[in-house]
Each structure stands twice: as C-alpha cells, then as structure tokens.
Nucleic acid binder design. Structure first.
Length: 492
RNA sequence: CGGGGUGUGGCGCAGUUGGCUAGCGCACCUGCUUUGGGAGCAGGGGGUCCUCCGUUCGAGUCGGAGUACCCCGACCA
C-alpha cells in the first residue's frame, strides 16, 4: 500500500499533488517554489514540445534563443508591461562571491555590485524587441516569426507543481509584422494551433476566446486564450496568444520603411504555452487509481507484466513478450516489459496504472498454453482475454480508441458542467457547484470586478467561435443590455 | 504581507499530567516460502526528536525567540 493515491472527492488539491509525486512526474525542490521534473514527467513534456515544435515549423516559424537576463531599464520601457510583472521579478544585483571574512562559507562581494541590475526574464518581449530593432529596416525584413523554448521566472507567492511554479519551462513566440491585419491573423493562427493540439494530442477540449480588458496580458491590445475545464469544475488557462499592436515597437522604436518609402512602426504578437499544460493533462483525465495518459503523449504505450512461478515459466513468458514487443515496436509503439522479479504482479498492475500507461498486457502460464493474453485498458479499467495471434494490430488500434474515448469523456464532462445562467440569484447558487457559467455581461470592468469580489469567479473568456453565445440579453449582475454571453468560472 | 497548522530514521506518523533504553507502519538489507490485483514469516541496519536560549534532579514533551515547510486569502501561465 505504499503508493496509494487519495480520492478526488476528498480533497482535490491533495489528490492532485499526491498524484504528481506518486506517478513520478515531479517533486518539490530545495529551492522555494521551484520543482524538479523527473524523467517520466519530462518524457511527456518532450512529446508536447516535439509536436508543438513541428506545428510551429509547418506554419513558417523558426526557433531562436534570447538571453535569460534582461537589463532593468528594458523592462520599464513599456508602461503596462512593467506594471504587470514588476511585483514578481527575481533580480541579479551582484556578479561575484567571496569567502566570508567573519566565518566560514561565502558571502556576496559588495565590490561586485552591478551598475545596472539584471532581471531574470519573467517573459522576453523586452529583450527580444530590443534585438528586433536591429533586425528590421525595411518591409522586406518582415515578417519575423521566431519562437524560443526557454525557462522563465515569476516570483509567485504561492506555487503548485506544474500549475504555478517560480521557474517554469515554456515556449514563447514573438512575431513582427508590417500590418495590423497580418499580426491579428498570426495571433489567431496560433491560438487555433494550440486548440487543435490540445484536442488532438492532449485529448483536452478547450474554449477559444478573448480575454476581457481586465484579464489581458500586460502590454497587449488583445489576448486570445484557450480555457479548459478541470475535473473539479475549475477553469485552467492553457495557452495564450497576444496581439500586441504597436506597443512594443513604439517602446523600443522599431520602424520599417514601407514600399512607398514611409517609416512605420511594426505590429507584434507574442504567444506561449508552458509546463502548465502538464497540470492540465493530469487534472483533466486522471482518476483515483492515478494518471490517465492519452496514448499520443504517453511515454510508454504498452506495459507487459509476466505472471510466473518457476524460472522456466518466466523465461518462456518473457520470450513470448519479446516477440510481441518486436511487432509493436514496428508499429511505432513504445513498450516496456516489467520483468522485475522482486515484485508481485498485483503490485506492478497498480504501479503502471498509477503512471497512466494506456494498455497493459499480462501473460501467465495459462495464457501460454492457450495462446492468449490478458489485455487491460487504463481509460476504462476493463480487461479481456485475447488471442496472441493478431494481438499487435489489435493493440495498435486500441490506441486510437483510447485516445478518442479520453477526449469524449472530457467533452461530456465539460458539457455536463456548462450551463446558461440568467439571474444573479441563480449565479450565486450555480457558481458554488463549479463549472462554466455562460452569462450575459454588460462589458464593463466594474461589473466584472464586482462579480469577482463577490464570488471569486472571473470572466474566463469571451468565446470566439460559438454561435449560440451571440444573442441579446441582460447582464447577469447589472441587468444592462448585452449582445453576447461570456464564460464565468472560478479558475486556477 | 494577514489568518491557521506542522517540524520526531528515506516517507507517513504515535509519543498521555515532563520520567528511565524514543516507538510504529511503509521503504531498505539478508534468508526462506511466494507470484492471475498492491505477499508472508524470521532476522538486520538506520535518529544531533528544526535551531538557540530558558525552567527543572530530569525536556521529544513546558516557556521564549528564531527558522523552515504546508493550508486558506491578496498576486499569477
């Protein structure tokens, strides 16, 4: 009973934390607020990275890398941007240590004070736009479509594994365009790319929408986002794509010569997803037995557990497994044969379920005689005895079935927990139940803040693509006229 | 930065109104028996009880200060 996971309904956040640690994805580090991503967790992140990277390149983007440190003066060039990040920055003030003259160990050498402090990037707009200034002269230099895979630091008060850590891994795209229309199209392209990735790979349905002015990225004219629903009914912002207008171009004086010979400021976007996606993946699909991984992101697709009494049986079973493994490898699946001899099969079953491996194959002496194997699905927790013959293709097609099933389950859950609410009394009751509330809103920040103050619910987004949301109505709080419903929810 | 809680082998905890050699479960090591849903028995190793100061014949236990972490708020991908 070493690795029992707590139940979801008892304490959702404890369940989540427990799961992350027990499933071997990550753990807290010695550094406050920072986490260690363990090999099993990182393997999932690598799959996410690879797929996104492929999609970025298919849409004409290139990877580049910019410095970790940002001179303090850069950060203050865009007024809203500083305000948004100032409160959570790590600052480098010195560049040297020395032996402690009054004792043992080392102290900061006071003589090594930096003339200008360096900020550990909370995001890279400023350093990148300072660089783009030198890259852009003419309309022929545009567009610039760069992405970087990097780590950033935001000194958060409270942290949670994957969902909010002081340091996190992400990708951040930064693009420069000649026209407003092109920049807006880029921001939309990316948010759709994210949504499609979430659906196809993470088996995660998301709502694409626009942030209200209040929730917008510091320095953006518009923030597009994808919002997902977790199993406790809370919303999680899974990715953002910002239309930055000419704000950063103006702050860093980035102009280009048009065909006609005029000087114009360039238009910008930035966009990103982070290791928070891992949190979304875990919270959206897992159950009380542990992680449930969609096959497209699972580091191990199939785990095989031999059941045996004698050495001869063990050898014969593992031989049969090796043969099946070879066939599965040919089909592109990753396979693990768990032939540890110090653990019982029941323990292994539980352990691999905890780690979310989509399919488990158990073979025992009985199967060996009958030419069968026991195949268990992680998503449904069902198992059946199947003939060894043709098992490779059966398992291969199971992957798509499982992927789809996990997605459908998440869609169903979201639909069951999304509802229209039209009165304030109803809102107060419904928000306690969790989920997405589709409500009319008068469009003012005051109303939005009042609702947040009273209920902790925020506008997750103004959905872009849902026709049903466009209709006349009255604001759920103020009663003023509204033309479209927005999504209210409590969030992470 | 406010409110609450916890610091005892690697992990999770117990330790009564201060009392004698600091204990339990898991994990670990050795051996035997086991293996179709988290094995059993026997033996074994591992502790400056967060730190400092105080009270006392005697402190894991009481008091004070510090410190670290967790939970709830404010802040956020």
């Amino acid at each position: 009973m070493a690795k029992e996971v707590t139940k979801r309904e008892d304490n959702y956040s404890q369940w989540y934390n427990n799961l992350v640690v027990k499933a071997d994805l990550a753990e807290n580090s010695a550094v406050r607020g920072c986490m260690v991503i363990k090999p099993y967790g990182y393997a999932i992140w690598e799959k996410i990275q690879a797929q996104l990277d492929k999609r970025f390149k298919e849409t004409g983007h290139q990877n580049a890398y910019f410095p970790l440190f940002i001179p303090k003066s850069f950060l203050s060039k865009e007024a809203e941007h500083v305000e948004g990040f100032a409160k959570e920055c790590a600052v480098v003030t010195h560049h040297r240590l020395m032996k402690d003259p009054n004792g043992t160990g080392v102290v900061v050498d006071p003589d090594a004070k930096l003339e200008e402090e360096l900020i550990v990037r909370p995001t890279s707009e400023t350093i990148i736009w300072n660089t783009y200034k030198n890259w852009i002269n003419s309309y022929r230099d545009l567009p610039i479509l760069c992405n970087q895979w990097a780590n950033v630091v935001r000194w958060e008060m409270r942290t949670r594994l994957f969902l909010r850590t002081a340091e996190f891994l992400w990708q951040e795209g930064h693009t420069a365009h000649a026209t407003k229309e092109e920049a807006i199209a880029e921001a939309e392209l990316i948010i759709n790319l994210y949504a499609d990735f979430a659906k196809q790979y993470m088996a995660l349905p998301v709502v694409i929408g626009k942030k209200s002015a209040n929730e917008r990225f510091a320095g953006a004219l518009d923030t597009l986002c994808i919002e997902a629903m977790m199993q406790d009914g809370k919303a999680l912002q899974a990715g953002t794509s910002h239309f930055l207008g000419q704000n950063f171009a103006k702050a860093f004086d980035v102009k280009y010569a048009t065909k006609e010979g005029n000087l114009e400021y360039v238009w910008a976007t930035s966009w990103g997803v982070s290791t928070r996606l891992m949190g979304a993946l875990i919270m959206a699909h897992s159950d009380d037995n542990g992680l449930v991984l969609p096959p497209k992101l699972a580091p191990i697709h199939v785990v095989m557990v031999p059941i045996f009494k004698t050495d001869e049986e063990h050898t014969a079973i593992v031989d049969a497994m090796e043969a099946l493994k070879k066939q599965l490898l040919k089909l592109g699946l990753s396979v693990k044969i768990d032939d540890r001899d110090n653990l019982r099969s029941g323990f292994k079953f539980a352990e691999w379920e905890l780690k979310g491996v989509p399919v488990r194959v158990a073979i025992g002496p009985r199967d060996l005689q009958n030419g069968t194997a026991e195949v268990a699905r992680r998503d449904t927790l069902t198992k059946e005895i199947l003939p060894m013959e043709g098992l490779d293709s059966t398992i291969f097609s199971l992957m798509d079935i499982i992927q789809e099933n996990i997605y459908n389950k998440a869609v169903t859950f979201r639909e069951e927990n999304t509802r229209k609410v039209d009165s304030w009394e109803e809102f107060l009751v419904e928000i306690e139940k969790g989920g997405f509330l589709m409500c009319h809103w008068d469009g003012t920040t005051q109303t939005e803040e009042k609702i947040k103050e009273l209920t902790k619910a925020t506008i997750r987004c103004i959905p872009l693509d849902t026709d049903v949301m466009i209709e006349e109505g009255k604001c759920v709080y103020s009663g003023k006229p509204s033309h479209q419903r927005v999504i209210f929810a409590r969030s992470y």
